[in-house]
């Protein structure tokens, strides 16, 4: 991370964005987030969700995965995850950062931020 990236203009955008985010989030209900698995990767490396949101994992890969989290208090193990299947996890918990990974392919990693 270079400091140049955090130019004042950008910070202004961030602040504006957060204010915006604050107002929109107040009205938003629990959402579903869809995260794919293809070519031994999650479709996104990180994702922000809100308490109460649901994350649906979809295996659009050609091989079996095993999606787990060993983050304290936020553990789950989605078991054998065949191609074509989808499985959901709801995050009713407090704020937190969840490290999600595949036990078959440890390079498959995803970080969920619960705000």
């Amino acid at each position: 991370m270079k400091h140049g990236i955090f130019a004042p203009g950008l910070i202004a955008i961030l602040i504006a964005g957060t204010v915006f985010a604050f107002f929109t989030s107040a009205s938003a209900n629990a959402r579903e987030h869809i995260i794919g698995q293809a070519n031994l990767q999650f479709s996104v490396p990180l994702k922000v969700i809100k308490p109460g949101d649901r994350v649906t994992f979809v295996n659009n890969d050609s091989v079996v995965h095993n999606i787990i989290s060993q983050t304290a208090g936020l553990q789950f193990d989605l078991g054998v995850f065949e191609p074509g299947m989808q499985k959901s996890v709801s995050f009713n918990q407090k704020n937190g950062v969840v490290d999600v990974e595949c036990t078959v392919h440890p390079n498959m990693k995803l970080t969920l931020f619960i705000f």
Binding site: L14, G17, T18, F20, A21, T24, S25, L46, K47, F113
Partner: peptide, 9 residues
């Protein structure tokens, strides 16, 4: 995350 929440919302 801060940046992304902006994007997400």
């Amino acid at each position: 995350a801060f940046f992304i929440i902006v994007f997400n919302t």
